[in-house]
Simulated assay, not measured.
Amino acid sequence: MWTKIVPVTALIASVSLTGGTAYAAPTTPVGGEALGSRGLVSPEGVQKPPKSQATSYVIADVTTGDVLAAKDAHGRYLPASTLKTLTALTLIPKLDKSRKIRPSRNACNQEGTAVGLSVKATYKIEDLFRALMMSSGNDAAMALAETNGSLAQTMRDMNAEAKRLQALDTVAKTPSGLDKPGQSSSAYDLALIARAGLTNPDFRRYISTKTAKFPAPKGYYEISNHNKLLGRYKGMIGVKNGWTSKALGSFVGAATRDGHTIVVSVMRYEGSFWEEVGKLLDWGFSVRGKAAPVGKLVDPVPDAQAAPRPGASAPGTQVTPAAQPPLLDTAASKQSDSSRTVGTVVIGGGLLFGLIWLGYGIRRRRSRSRL
């Protein structure tokens, strides 16, 4: 069986060890109550979105942040190379794009998709970002992470950026998106990250470039963008696709028509998703401004230490089945499809041990992912 971490009500309340008091953690899904549903969430009064084979997806208006439709928006899945959107968004402001580096042997020997880095060649940082976002180079991802100081530092930075964006379903364990236990994201978070990336001119330039010359030990060779909708779908800007045998297909992409931009993210798609993504984008453009949104892509928090601010549920939405709130990050890796919703607990300092014992007693074993 494949594993999906089900969004459920927070199990453990936050406790202040200094004051001995406690408070209930927010349980409303980020972006709105309806987005906690595992089923289709679509607006009333307009045609429903096209049927999708994706286990999870989000269609949203980038300009307004309105979520137009969603399916299991906060379901946590392996992101594959769509996680590179977070890598780029995190590191573009930190690294001088004109700086030249020689990659380590470790970076050059990364498994999976690679652009072909060589320890004998010198690369500008912007070359590596093009390789990351156009050719999905896992070698480029590691080279950028190491240039940021270290792999560990980059993972801290990426996870801090996810929290700042309120992408709370996202846990980054690798800069490339290669599968690793505990790594996760959601269709909601991918749309949120892409929306933030589109405000950065360099990010936008990297994702929309179709072909580019790439340095080699002697001369150059050409690399191309893996996004098959570039040049084929009207208004396509780009963003990122991904695939692993465990994650299956994933994609986040944005297109602009008549001054409006729609973003679509899909996760856990078996087979080719390109045609279907085009239909979801078409639907988004057709209903934009004509129906009440089912949720919101929230704005980043102004301070990295600020608490997440869940959105309000939207009127006039169809939810199938009943909404389920998302899970606290601290319990994410412990959940499986067999987990049950547990009410939020409010306790005093004296009952902390009892709560920990309760949490231990009801944990479910983790399902194994299918290759």
Rank of each mutant, 00 (worst) to 15 (best):
H260E: 15
G354T: 09
S250P: 14
G149D: 02
I125S: 01
D303F: 07
Y233H: 02
A80I: 07
G235R: 02
K240V: 04
S16G: 13
D337E: 14
A187Y: 04
P321F: 01
I356Q: 08
K334V: 10
S150M: 03
F285L: 01
P315C: 07
I101K: 03
S265T: 12
T64D: 02
A114P: 11
A34Y: 01
V67K: 00
I237H: 01
A10H: 10
V287D: 04
S339L: 04
K296H: 08
S245T: 15
S176Y: 05
I92D: 12
Y221I: 00
M236Q: 04
I12D: 04
A73Q: 05
T317R: 02
L371T: 15
R268L: 05
V263K: 06
A160L: 14
G359N: 13
F273L: 03
T256S: 12
G182L: 04
G235L: 09
N200D: 15
D329G: 12
P50Y: 01
K296A: 03
A10V: 15
T330W: 11
D72F: 13
W274L: 08
M267V: 06
K296E: 05
F273E: 01
T3Y: 11
A10G: 14
L281G: 04
I356L: 14
G19H: 08
R195G: 06
V30P: 13
V239A: 08
L83S: 05
D189T: 04
R205F: 09
E126H: 06
V294S: 06
L117K: 02
L192R: 10
P310T: 08
G19L: 11
G359D: 10
A54D: 00
E161N: 06
L144A: 10
R105W: 04
G311C: 07
S81T: 02
V67H: 01
I59N: 00
H74Y: 05
S136M: 05
N241A: 07
K210P: 12
A331S: 13
T330P: 06
F214Y: 02
V298W: 10
G45A: 02
V277G: 00
Q305K: 15
S16V: 06
R309C: 07
N106I: 11
A332Q: 11
N200T: 14
N109C: 09
G116A: 09
R102K: 13
D157Y: 12
I12A: 02
R38Q: 09
R366I: 15
E146Y: 12
T64A: 06
S265C: 09
S150E: 02
I101L: 13
W357G: 09
D139R: 01
A167T: 05
D139S: 04
R205H: 12
V298M: 06
V266G: 01
V58K: 08
L358Q: 13
V264Y: 00
G231W: 08
P43T: 05
S150P: 01
P325I: 00
Q305N: 15
R232I: 13
V58N: 03
Y188S: 07
V115C: 05
V287G: 03
G289V: 04
Y123P: 08
G259K: 06
D303W: 05
L86H: 07
L351Y: 10
F129Q: 07
E44L: 13
P181T: 09
V252P: 10
N200A: 11
W274P: 11
L280S: 00
